[in-house]
C-alpha cells in the first residue's frame, strides 16, 4: 500500500515537472521572446536586454529551467514586473476565493448528482430515469460559461435575486455571491456524477451478493444504501478528483462572468497585460493543484476499496 502511495506521488511529481518544463520550453520556442511580447511596441533593444536580465532570460535554456525549479521550490515564483510585487504573494491572496468556489461547485454537484444517480438506478427505465438521463447528458454537454451567462442574465440582471459582481462581504454576503458562480461550475458535474453513480449502481445491483443480502432478509434500505452504494460510490470518488481539476479551469469563466476575484480572473488580467511571470505562476499553481487533486482521489479510492487496498 505504502509503495503504491509513494509510486503515485512520484508519478505526480514527474508529471508536474514535465508539464512545467514543457510550458517553459513552449514560451521560449515561439518566435520572438517573452520580453519582446511583453514590451509590445515600446520594445527598444536596451529595454529588451534589461528585461531579459531581470527575468533571467539571458542565460542558456537548461540553466534557466533548473534555476526556475530551484526558485519555485523555495517558494519564489518570480516578480510581477508590472506591479513590482512577488508573484507568489499575488497568487496566494486569490487562491482561497478559487478554492472556495471549486469546493462549493463540487459540494453541490455531489449533493445533487449522487442522489440523482441512485434514484435513477433504483427505477431503471422509468420516465423519471429517462428524464434524469437526458438532463445529465445535457448538463455535461452544455458549455458552463453559456450557462453562467444565462444565469447572470436571468437571476442577477433581470430578476435581481443575486448580486452581479464581486466576492461579497461577511459570511452571508460571500455565500450570496457564491450561489451563481458555484451553480455555473458545478452543473456539468451534476450530470457526470449522476451518470457514473447510476451506471455503477446498476452494475452492482446485478451482482450476486445483492441477492444474497436480500435472501438473508436485510431491509431494502440497508441493501441499497450500505451494501450497494458503498461499492457504487467508488468510481464517483475518482471522478471527483478529475472534477476538481476541470473546475480549476472552469472557474476562469465563472470568475470573469461574475466578476469574482480568483486564479481565473488573475490569469485573465495577466494575459491581457502579457504579464509572463504571473501567467507562468498561475499555470504552475493550477497545474499543481490539478495533479494533486487527481492523485489524492486515486489514493483515497485505493484506500476505500479493500480489494484494491489488499493488492497494493
Amino acid at each position: 500500500m505504502l509503495v503504491y502511495v509513494l509510486k503515485r506521488i512520484g508519478l505526480a511529481l514527474v508529471i508536474i515537472i514535465l508539464a512545467v518544463t514543457l510550458l517553459y520550453l513552449m514560451i521560449h520556442a515561439v518566435p520572438g521572446d517573452p520580453a519582446t511580447v511583453m514590451l509590445g511596441p515600446r520594445a527598444t533593444p536596451e529595454l529588451i536586454a534589461q528585461l531579459h536580465q531581470r527575468m533571467g532570460l539571458d542565460k542558456p535554456l537548461p540553466v534557466q529551467i533548473i534555476s526556475f525549479f530551484g526558485r519555485v521550490l523555495s517558494g519564489d515564483l518570480g516578480t510581477d514586473v508590472f506591479q513590482e510585487k512577488p508573484v507568489a504573494g499575488i497568487i496566494i491572496s486569490v487562491v482561497p476565493y478559487t478554492l472556495i468556489l471549486v469546493g462549493a461547485g463540487i459540494a453541490w454537484s455531489l449533493a445533487l448528482g449522487i442522489p440523482l444517480g441512485v434514484f435513477s438506478a433504483l427505477r431503471p427505465d422509468s420516465w423519471i430515469d429517462k428524464v434524469a438521463g437526458i438532463l445529465s447528458v445535457a448538463f455535461i454537454a452544455m458549455p458552463a460559461f453559456v450557462v453562467g451567462l444565462y444565469a447572470l442574465l436571468l437571476f442577477a440582471v433581470t430578476l435581481g435575486w443575486f448580486p452581479v459582481i464581486g466576492g461579497g462581504e461577511g459570511f452571508a454576503g460571500q455565500l450570496h455571491h457564491l450561489v451563481l458562480p458555484a451553480f455555473t461550475v458545478g452543473l456539468g458535474w451534476v450530470g457526470y456524477l449522476a451518470r457514473i453513480v447510476r451506471a455503477s449502481m446498476l452494475e452492482v445491483l446485478a451482482e450476486n451478493h445483492v441477492r444474497h443480502a436480500r435472501a438473508h432478509g436485510l431491509p431494502q434500505r440497508v441493501v441499497h444504501y450500505q451494501y450497494v452504494l458503498r461499492i457504487a460510490i467508488l468510481p464517483a470518488v475518482t471522478i471527483v478528483g478529475i472534477g476538481i481539476g476541470a473546475m480549476l479551469s472552469g472557474v476562469v469563466f465563472a470568475e470573469i462572468i461574475f466578476a469574482r476575484p480568483g486564479l481565473g480572473k488573475l490569469i485573465f488580467v495577466a494575459v491581457q497585460q502579457r504579464n509572463f511571470p504571473l501567467i507562468m505562476g498561475t499555470v504552475l499553481v493550477t497545474t499543481t493543484l490539478f495533479v494533486v487533486a487527481t492523485t489524492l482521489s486515486d489514493i483515497v479510492n485505493a484506500l476505500l476499496d479493500p480489494r484494491i487496498r489488499e493488492r497494493l
Binding site: I15, A19, G245, S249, V252, I267, V271, T286, T287, T294
Partner: peptide
C-alpha cells in the same frame, strides 16, 4: 498524462499570450 494535467483554459490562455 502530462498533456492532460494542464487545466485546459489556463493552458489555452498561456498559449494565446504567446
Amino acid at each position: 498524462d502530462t498533456l492532460r494535467s494542464f487545466p485546459v483554459v489556463m493552458f489555452a490562455l498561456a498559449v494565446v499570450t504567446l
